[in-house]
Every structure is written in C-alpha cells, then in structure tokens.
Design a protein around this nucleic acid. Sequence first.
DNA 1: AGGTATTCACATGAAACTATTCTCTGAGTTAGG
DNA 2: TAACTCAGAGAATAGTTTCATGTGAATACCTGT
Length: 401
Amino acid sequence: MKKMKKFFEHFLERESLFTNKALLLSHYVPSEILYREELISEIANILAPSLRVERPSNLFVYGKTGTGKTLSIKYILQSMDQIAKEREIPLKSIYVNCKLKRVADTEYRLIAQIIKAFGREVPATGLPTDEVYNIFYSLLDSKKQIVLLVLDEIDQLTKKMGDEMLYNLTRINAELKQSQICLIGISNNLVFAENLDPRVQSSLSEEELIFPPYNALQIQDILRQRCEQAFAPGVVEPGVVEKCAAYAAREHGDARRAIDLLRVAGELAERENSKTVALNHLDKAEEKIESDKIVNTVTSQPKQFQLVLYAILQLTPNKRPFFTGEIYELYSQVCKKAQFNVLTQRRISDILAEFDMLGIINAKIISKGRYGRTREVSVSLDEMMKIKLQELIEKSLKMNN
DNA sequence: AGGTATTCACATGAAACTATTCTCTGAGTTAGG
DNA sequence: TAACTCAGAGAATAGTTTCATGTGAATACCTGT
C-alpha cells in the first residue's frame, strides 16, 4: 500500500515530458494544416455553395493513409459548421467512418448512424431496413436544409455489400422535396471507383481530389509544429524529428504514423525517467507499435481464429513453409484436445486468407503441379513474438473454456 | 523428344443454415372501476 | 375496460456449412520420328 502511494506520489512530482499530449493523438485537428492549403481551399470552394443553401457537387477524395484527407475534411467542416451556426444557415454535416466494425459497416448501421447524428436513436436490430430508410428520409426532409455527408473509408463499405446502397444514396436527392444531400467520399484505395457501377461512379465523383503523400521534409515540419506545443522545450533531442520523418517517409509518407511514433517514443522516454526523447526511444517505439499492433489484432480475433493461429505457430519450428492441409490437420487435433468444435476446411481456408490480409502470416497460393494447389504459408514473426502469442492464445482459450 | 491429357489438393463462389439479439404485434391476463 | 405480460413472427448480423465449380503445373500417357 505504502509502496503504491509512494509510486504515485513520485509519478506526480515528476515533471512530464509532455506539455500537451493531445496534440499527438491521431484525431487531433490542429488549427493550421501544413502543406494542404491548396487542397483545402479547393475543397472549400466546392463545398461553399452549401452555405447559400445550394447543393454542392458530390466530392470524392483519394489518398493513401496519413496524407491528411480526413483531417482536412474535418477541418473544413468544423469551420463551416461554425459559420452556419453563427448565421443560422440550415447546414448539417455528418461524418461517418465506414470502417468501424459494428458501428457503420453495413447498410443498416450506416443509416442508423446517420439518424443518430440527427439526434434520434434507432435500435441495433429488429427493424427492417426500409423502415430505417423511411425514418432517415423523413428526418432529412423535415425541413429545408443542406446535409453534407462524409463517408470515410467508403471502400470498406462497398467491399462488404456492393455498391447498391451508394446508388440509393446518390438518388436520394431526387426524392427529397426540401432538403438536399451532398456526399463526400473518402477512400485510400486509389482504384476504388473503377469497379463501381458507372452510374454511381459518375454521380459520386462529380469532383475528385487526390491527396499526395508527404515527403520527408514536409513530415518534419508537421512534426515540429506539433512538437513545439506537445513537448516541453528542449525535451526532444536533435535528430529525433528527422529520423522519425525518415521512418514515415519510407512508408509512403504516412504522417499519422510519424506522429504516433513520436508520441510513443515520448511515452517510453517518460516511463524510463529519461529527461529527453532520444533516438533510441524511437527505435523502441517502432518496435512497440509493431508488436502492440500484432498483439492487438490477434487478441481481438474470435477464438476459432486463435485456434488456427495456434496450430500455425506449433508448425513453425519444424520446417519453413507449410500447406493448408497440414495446418488443418493440426488444427483439428488442437480443437479436439481443447474441446472445441472443429470447423470445415473450407472455413479454415477463409481464415487463413484473412490472416494473410491482416499481415500476421504470409500466404501465397502455389501449385504443386501433380500434387495439387494450395496456400504456402509462412510466419514472419520473430521468435519472441511467436512465444508471446502462443502464451496469449493459451490463456485466452482457457479463460473462455 | 514433344505434345496432350490427367490429376491432385486445394481455392473460390454462392447459397443456405444457425444462433443471437432485438422489435413489433396481438392474444390472453390482470387489476381496478 | 385499460394496462400489462408474454409468446411468436420477423429482421439484421456473424459465423458456418453444403454444394459446386475452378485451377496451375508436375506427371502420365501417347505419338510419330
């Protein structure tokens, strides 16, 4: 008890390296967005008519992750909302992230989410979809207004359920008597629109913008901008920002990653009681982010996934690559031993494909000629990680058993 | 030797099924007048 | 008679199973030289 108290007291006495950590969180919207002035003013131009209660063109924004798409849009919407509020313009902006599992990743939930933005709740299940649509319509058309609907990561939406609903959304305007809706799609898949119904394609991307990646110098500036206020002066050692930017630039100029890296480095430094954030903290931070990501994705998988992964991990020490059949066999044994029901090979095939997507395993489909066609699976984790994951899975399976 | 045809061991697709969670509706029940 | 309860029908969704079809290239088989 005493020990604990001492620890916390010590913690409080210690001066934090951060002065304002919020600046380094990924959803923070800074008051000035560097290197995006042109794009922002272009978007602002496109959206401005909505302030005169005219429907602006639908807009489509492309760009890789961490290029400031979401940030810029949010930034613009914030100031538009503010003006609309001051002058009582009937303008409403709604931001939905379509990737969020169990929030907005289906047609029903997306509409439900929008309804929620209008201040009305809709049950998560039980209602037919058209009922929800009706509520949405009536809410939308209840008064004259312009609605700016931002669909972030819109590609996730269509991947799951086709483009029919986007078609519905683009057609809404024709049926609304008073209001008008403007769609703003954000996607980090550059070829997203290509496999879309041409009708949807043309009406959705009346205007198109591409956010290019930042280069290393730009990322440096962005980092410095945040550093100045986020960290106490003199805390960040020289060279740290540069290296951080270099890391990020290596990966297609992902500014978000750079900022995360910096924050985690800071946290690690603080935990070590270091007075400064040094280069070695960056390396550790990168490791930590990587490993946290893996641990996170693995533990958040359903238990059958974990069982499959467990089987794979058991296989790794033997020989290098192995095939679906082998994994399945071992998996069934593991399942039987642990009293889980054994899924079909068909299912395991899908699960393996998903693990590949998640980047936890490398799976390549190869043909062994006369000896069939299969996935050649290998694991690209270091030994420490493998052991850690095995333990983790064992624990989590026991818990649920 | 060179050219086809087979064949393996899965991959990939589509549809249907199961279980869970939740709504809505209407029949039956209850309590109060 | 109004209010309440409760079972049953219907939905959305995730996770599977079933059935059907696809597939790349190492081998088996054949052919004419």
